[in-house]
Design a protein around this nucleic acid. Sequence first.
DNA 1: ATTATCTATAGATCTATAGATAATGC
DNA 2: ATTATCTATAGATCTATAGATAATGC
Lengths: 220, 220
Amino acid sequence: MRSPRTTPRPTAQRTRERILDASLAMFNALGEPNVSTNHIADETGISPGNLYYHFRSKDDIVEQLFAGYEARIDEALLLPDTRAPDLEDLWLQLHLLFEAISQYRFLHRDLVDILTRNRRIRSRFSRILDRASTSARTLLQALAQAGILHASDEDLHSLVENAIALVTFWIGFDTVRSGHYDGSRSDPGVGIRRVLGLLTPYLDPAARAHFARLTDAYGA
Amino acid sequence: MRSPRTTPRPTAQRTRERILDASLAMFNALGEPNVSTNHIADETGISPGNLYYHFRSKDDIVEQLFAGYEARIDEALLLPDTRAPDLEDLWLQLHLLFEAISQYRFLHRDLVDILTRNRRIRSRFSRILDRASTSARTLLQALAQAGILHASDEDLHSLVENAIALVTFWIGFDTVRSGHYDGSRSDPGVGIRRVLGLLTPYLDPAARAHFARLTDAYGA
DNA sequence: ATTATCTATAGATCTATAGATAATGC
DNA sequence: ATTATCTATAGATCTATAGATAATGC
């Protein structure tokens, strides 16, 4: 056990952050399984021993990064609490989700492998999916209530699950479909349009036109 | 270079097959990145040296397995050539696809990582996606021609891409969503229903009822 | 004589730790 | 005195090969 650092020194704090930054960048570029603690130390410009002074293990680094990811996702899933959510909330939520996922895309690239090897992250991710499901359901039910979406309960369930599947594995699909395996960031616009494509057949014509305007105006 | 075996001895042939069988089973159960050539040799009951007599490398094993996968997928993608494909062809194709993928699920579990590390498999998989896209498009266009599906060209494109994404990453999504990380085979029924769920809003009511009957009758 | 198999091992990792040394804060 | 860092290394892999030995087929 390391003693708690109540007042961390500026230098060490920066080193810790630099390790996390380098890890995230390399994980995203090369895939987490293909990046060793030696690579990370090397890229950060420190010794492997120093890396293990700041982090218990490679998994510890992954978990710290995951905490950042989880915070971003939870923020993206927030819905307005004083009024019913509308189409523009859905549109914004999708943009925030794709942005957060893109920032931590290494997690989604090797999702099954990472979750298989780490029980803690596994259960936390499982709860993220549940929260996403709840959020999406709430949103779509509000749209149904407002009369701009028409779907049976079964349709709605299928819709929510398919949307979650598509968002979760968009990074993977985009990679294999486009053939860009270098881990570079890709335009989230197509992914967002595909998720919205799941929804459109259930939307009112007026709402569909509304979406078209949003897409044209903000370019995604 | 190994000399060509024109008339392979039965024993050796069996060993080769046993290596492939053990590899497939362990890859599916534990994930390809987590299975070493030592594990495979151990499970097959041979020495690591013997394994390398039969296969050039671990990648060689993966490629041999991939060839079997590719053949199964290509077979599943075949459409009738003497008549226009109909709803039941689509239904059958989905079943064959899910069956083939389930048999080689290790490929889909770590798809991006495997394709990143192996250029040959990468380009072959890319062509599989193209063939799947063509097959799906042909099928859906036939349905549109027959008047049982109504969708614009843009809708149809989105539909095809979303279906391919869902089928390709169903194994991954099912794993993280259900929380069963032991690599065991899961019921493909839900996955098939989800893919069909993409289609239903574009279908004629009569065709939708047809699907419901198929699902009830054959249990998926 | 050829094919199949095993033993033993080189060489390259990788994760993680022990222990020495340097830098900082009181 | 505490915190941060480095050097060096143990110990566990893992992939792959060399070279010896066994089994098979003509």
